[in-house]
């Protein structure tokens, strides 16, 4: 029994590295005898052994480290590329999971006439805040958008009916709708990740598919230290260490949505 499980874990671990199933099958094929010794069991479903879990994932964006547009661009590029986010020709139909905007748009109630020149001209990344109390989840009539066990606000594209109530409810404009079939507008498809179909709402998923195999979100990896990611409830996590020792703000905190993306300005 133990052997079988260890074998499985080993294999799953390897598979996790590659995100694909190929290694699973190969390794299993070579060690099939070990595996079949086990008595037949009921099929079961589990997390991958390398999966990172947290009761509430959170992100800190240290905008002091942003010097120019070229610091933000790689985060957007990394995200949009691996998630097959299309480049729609008409800005009205734009789809974006993470994008760059000015302080006065990200924090409309904090911006003023006179403010630090650095902040005034700062282009900062904005994305879904994965709120702890998300209005989009509250309004969804089919639970197509929901908050998962890790505090990630997820989209179930199989279930979304495209009513766009969540877009009206989101106070951060983090959601996009597929007004047309997105496929023709994806420059280079990442074949490992699904695209979306027309008529559904989409948004950032905090890279749930990467966390499942033990990798941090793509934007964090590409951010060159600007973004930190971790477990909000763990006082020793990277994000908590930063939050505990710096003054951070969140977008539209007054609305009670409890965003999980923190900003250092």
């Amino acid at each position: 029994m133990k052997k079988g499980r260890r074998n499985f874990l080993k294999i799953a671990g390897i598979s996790a590295l590659g995100l694909g199933a190929k290694p699973v099958l190969d390794v299993f094929a070579s060690s099939e005898e070990d595996a079949v010794v086990e008595a037949p069991a009921e099929p079961r479903i589990m997390r991958g052994p390398n999966a990172m879990t947290a009761p509430q994932w959170a992100m800190v964006i240290d905008t002091r480290k942003i010097e120019s547009h070229s610091d933000v661009e790689p985060m957007i590029e990394a995200c949009h590329k691996i998630h097959n986010v299309p480049e729609m020709p008409d800005k009205k139909h734009e789809i974006k999971w993470i994008w760059e905007t000015e302080f006065k748009h990200a924090f409309p109630n904090l911006a003023g006439e006179y403010m630090s020149k650095r902040v005034e001209h700062l282009g900062l990344p904005v994305l879904c805040n994965h709120c702890e109390n998300p209005p989009c989840v509250r309004v969804c009539p089919t639970k197509a958008t929901f908050r998962n066990s890790q505090g990630i606000v997820m989209m179930d594209y199989h279930r979304c009916i495209g009513c766009r109530f969540c877009m009206a409810a989101c106070p951060y404009g983090s959601r996009s709708f597929n007004f047309f079939d997105p496929k023709p507008h994806i420059e280079e498809e990442n074949k490992k990740f699904p695209t979306r179909m027309r008529g559904v709402v989409e948004k950032c998923n905090f890279c749930a598919e990467r966390l499942a195999v033990g990798r941090k979100p793509a934007c964090v990896e590409a951010s060159n230290g600007i973004m930190a990611f971790g477990d909000l409830h763990d006082p020793r996590s990277e994000v908590r260490e930063i939050i505990d020792s710096n003054y951070t703000i969140r977008r539209k905190q007054n609305l009670g949505t409890r965003p999980a993306v923190y900003y250092i300005i």
Partner: peptide
């Protein structure tokens, strides 16, 4: 999508990425 569990273990104890 909903349970964040991605590995399927069949009755032969072999695991697959779902």
């Amino acid at each position: 999508v909903r349970d964040a569990k991605r590995i399927y273990v069949n009755e032969r104890n072999m695991g697959y990425d779902m």
